[in-house]
Simulated scan of single mutants.
Amino acid sequence: MIGYYVHHHGLGHRNRATQIARELDVPVTGFSSLERPEGWPGDWVQLPPDVTSEPVDPTANGVLHWAPLGHPGYRERMGIMAGHLRRSLDLMVTDTSAEVTLLARLMGVPTVVMAMRGDRTDRTHRAAYDAATALIAPWSRQTAEPYWPEAWNRKTTFTGAISRFDAPGGARPEPAAPRPARDAADTASPDRSVLVVWGRGGTVVGEDDVDAARAATPGWSWTVRTPDAPSPDLWREITEATVVVSHGGNNAVAELSAAGAHAVVVAQPRPHEEQAYTVAALDRAGICVGLQEWPEPTAWPALLDRAQLLGGSRWDAWRHGDGSQRAARALRDMVSGGAA
């Protein structure tokens, strides 16, 4: 039995976990404060919340990220997982929590950490990554973080991007061919469109920023999709848009890679600079236009032209097309006693 802890912040962790769990042929139990996702193939344990506006020593004097003293919800959720770890779990996957990783390891259960971009050199992350039996990185070895110690690299499965649109188990009807670069001189085309795909995890970009960018780019039509204004067919809209503008969240970028999109990816503030590191990796690989902050309106015409010129063929450096299958295979191998 595999346990799978899913962090409650945003929806990306749960979406990725579901993609991987659906590829497993061994029982899997999910643990999260979030509700059970559609398509989850096994049991789902909804944990009590541990959020509080007045936490007492939540970092244990800098040793941990979140372990508030005297919080009944936190104590109950850790106790629930400890009970499952004692009785039935052969492997614990965390996406992501240093505390759950260390809890599982302290109880003698092998642990797999779903790695994240960003600066993970703080004391708590180092302890979790060092203690983990294995790491799964949802990016390619080619675009790996250059600062990682070799000890982490040696125990990592680099799956490439994990997208819900990946074949064969994904939702898209058929693989998308790489999209070629488009001549930026083609400015008279009447069908030049921008699709803005924005998430729920927190943003410093508002409607006024998008409106200003729209006003600065006459001849381009802009459509904005968010969790509160979802797309009726996101795959179709991504593949049909001339340029897609997105935040730098892992799942959003994975979906751009699956579509081979001409893209502008803008980092949003996140703990440990997760999106900033993602955008930096995209920029290093020359995959798309990567920005550390939302630009001034006057910059948008040139940015959209540059995204067209870069095209979408470089996404092959980011994804293999079967990221969830690679992750599931690594987990099955660990449960059966093989190497990750």
Results as ranks from 00 to 15, higher is better:
Asp95Arg: 00
Asp90Gly: 09
Trp152Tyr: 13
Arg141Pro: 06
Thr121Pro: 01
Ile162Glu: 01
Leu89Gln: 04
Phe158Ile: 08
Met114Ile: 15
Glu99Phe: 05
Thr94Leu: 03
Val109Glu: 05
Ala134Met: 11
Ser140Glu: 05
Arg117Met: 15
Ala115Cys: 09
Glu145Ser: 09
Ala104Lys: 02
Ala104Arg: 02
Arg154Lys: 14
Asn153Gln: 14
Pro149Arg: 09
Arg141Gly: 08
Ile162Cys: 01
Arg141Cys: 06
Phe158Ala: 05
Glu150Lys: 12
Glu150Ser: 11
Ala132Leu: 11
Asp119Glu: 11
Thr143Gly: 02
Thr96Trp: 09
Arg141His: 14
Phe158Cys: 03
Val113Asn: 09
Val113Asp: 07
Glu150Cys: 04
Ser88Gln: 12
Met114Asp: 02
Ala132Ile: 12
Gly118Ile: 14
Thr94Trp: 00
Ala144Asn: 11
Thr157Val: 15
Arg105Met: 04
Ser140Gln: 11
Leu102Phe: 07
Ala134Glu: 10
Thr111Phe: 12
Arg105Gln: 10
Arg141Val: 13
Leu135Ala: 02
Pro146Arg: 06
Glu150Arg: 14
Ala161Leu: 08
Ile136Ala: 01
Pro110Phe: 13
Thr121Ser: 15
Arg126Asn: 05
Arg141Met: 12
Asp130Ile: 15
Lys155Val: 03
Arg154Ala: 15
Ala144Gln: 15
Val93Cys: 01
Met92Pro: 03
Gln142Phe: 13
Ala134Asp: 08
Ser97Ile: 13
Gly160Ala: 06
Ser140Leu: 09
Thr94Pro: 00
Ala127Asn: 06
Leu106Trp: 14
Ala98Tyr: 04
Ser88Tyr: 06
Leu91Glu: 01
Val112Asp: 03
Thr111Ile: 12
Gln142His: 14
Leu102Pro: 03
Thr94Lys: 00
Ala115Phe: 15
Ser88Asn: 11
Ser97Tyr: 05
Pro138Tyr: 15
Asn153Ser: 10
Tyr147Phe: 11
Arg123Leu: 13
Arg87Thr: 10
Ala127Ser: 13
Glu99Cys: 07
Val112Phe: 10
Thr101Tyr: 00
Ile162His: 04
Ile162Arg: 01
Gly160Pro: 07
Gly118Ala: 10
Val93Asn: 00
Ser88Ala: 10
Glu99Thr: 07
Thr96Ser: 13
Phe158Tyr: 15
Pro149Asn: 03
Gly108Ile: 14
Thr156Pro: 02
Trp152Asn: 06
Asp119Arg: 12
Leu89Thr: 05
Leu103Gln: 11
Ala161Met: 10
Ser97Trp: 05
Thr124Phe: 08
Asn153His: 12
Arg87Lys: 10
Leu89Asn: 00
Ala115His: 15
Glu150Leu: 10
Thr124Met: 09
Leu103Ile: 09
Glu99Ala: 06
Thr143Cys: 13
